[in-house]
Structures are given as C-alpha cells and as structure tokens.
C-alpha cells in the first residue's frame, strides 16, 4: 500500500514538473520559475545523498546542474520521462565534479597532509566560486549586457537591443552564449 502511494506520488510529481516545464518552454516565466525552484529542492536532496563526504560542494553543484538544465533545455524531448532527463544531467554533473576533484587531488597530493595550512584560503575560494555575479562580470560585453539587461533588470529584448546597439537576435544569442560560457567558467574553477 505504502509502496503504491510512493509510486503514485512520484508519478504525480513527474507530471506536475513536466507540465510546468512545458509551459515554461512555451514562454511562461512564472511556470518556469516554479519548475526550476521545485527542481532545485529535488536536486539538492539527490546530490546531498551522493556527496555525503563533500557537503560543501552540494549547493555549488545544485547551481551547476540548474544552469546546465537551463542551457540544455532544448534537448528535452516531451516523449521522454522528465525524471530520466533531469537525472542524467545531474549524474553527468556529479561525475564531472568527482572526476575534476580526483584530478585536482592527485595533482596536489604532497599537500594533503598540510590541509590545515590552506584551509583558510580554500574557504575563500569556495566563497568566490559561488559568486556567479563575479563570474558574470568577466564575460565580454556582448554576452554580459544582454544577461544583465534582460535577466537581472527585467528589460525586454527590444529595449536591450536599443540600449546596447546590438540587434535583437544578437541579444538572444548573447544571453544563450553567455550562460553557456558561465557554465564553463564554473566548471573551470576548482
């Protein structure tokens, strides 16, 4: 009985989230925002269970996965279970992180015993890593300005085009490329 309930709950969540995503992909911002924010809770739980020994990484990875899901949203096929798609992305990002860490730790093995010595600067780096705004500032203008105007200041594509002197399609491309560049920047920092 309990088991059927759990399965039904899973089904209902799948359908609910999928409906929100489909409305979001059709351009409904509010639906898309609830999709992403509900999803981030699921991602956090999923990743927390798998990063028990690396609790500090969880939130960074949640953000990385959200960014990846957003940047790759055109690869979702409505005929496919949403959970399979999301889980494959989350797992890809998780494995990617563990692999990068393994490489990093192998590289710095002689320092492993002196961990306390660098503990302070490690936390600094972690704070900086979370600072997407700081990373955003590093993007070239034709990517940064479209993101800042349309996504942070709430301007339309048209207004942004007028403001920046870019064409409307260049604004859209700038947002897309900028967010992809942001995802790569997050990956590149460890």
């Amino acid at each position: 009985m309990q088991r059927t309930n759990r399965v039904e709950g899973f089904q209902a969540r799948e359908e609910r989230l999928k409906a929100l995503l489909m409305r979001g992909l059709a351009g409904e911002n509010a639906a898309y925002q609830s999709f992403l924010s509900e999803l981030s809770a699921h991602l956090r739980a999923f990743l927390r269970r798998r990063l028990i020994r690396l609790p500090d990484e969880v939130e960074d990875l949640v953000q990385e996965a959200l960014l990846a899901i957003h940047n790759q949203r055109h690869t979702y096929d409505p005929g496919q279970p949403l959970s399979a798609w999301v889980q494959a992305i989350a797992r890809y990002k998780l494995i990617d992180l563990l692999r990068r860490r393994a490489g990093h730790e192998a590289l710095n093995e002689p320092l492993a015993d002196d961990l306390h010595l660098f503990a302070a600067s490690a936390t600094d780096a972690e704070d900086a890593r979370r600072d997407l705004q700081g990373l955003l500032a590093e993007l070239p203008d034709q990517q940064r300005l479209p993101i800042v105007h349309t996504k942070l200041e709430g301007r339309s594509v048209k207004e942004t085009a007028a403001l920046t002197g870019l064409s409307e399609s260049a604004v859209k491309v700038g947002v897309h490329r900028g967010l992809k560049a942001l995802a790569l920047k997050i990956r590149g920092i460890l």
Binding site: L25, S37, H74, R130, G154, V173
Partner: peptide, 23 residues
Amino acid sequence: MKTEDLVALLAAGDITPPGPAAG
C-alpha cells in the same frame, strides 16, 4: 549568488529554447 537568485535569473526574460529542432 543564492540558488533562488540563480533560479530567478534563469527564469527571467525570453526563455523559449533557441534554434530549430535537433533532427
């Protein structure tokens, strides 16, 4: 940046997916 702020950023503006279908 807090995760909720990132969600707000991603959900703002034009969110329809870019470009034609993969096929």
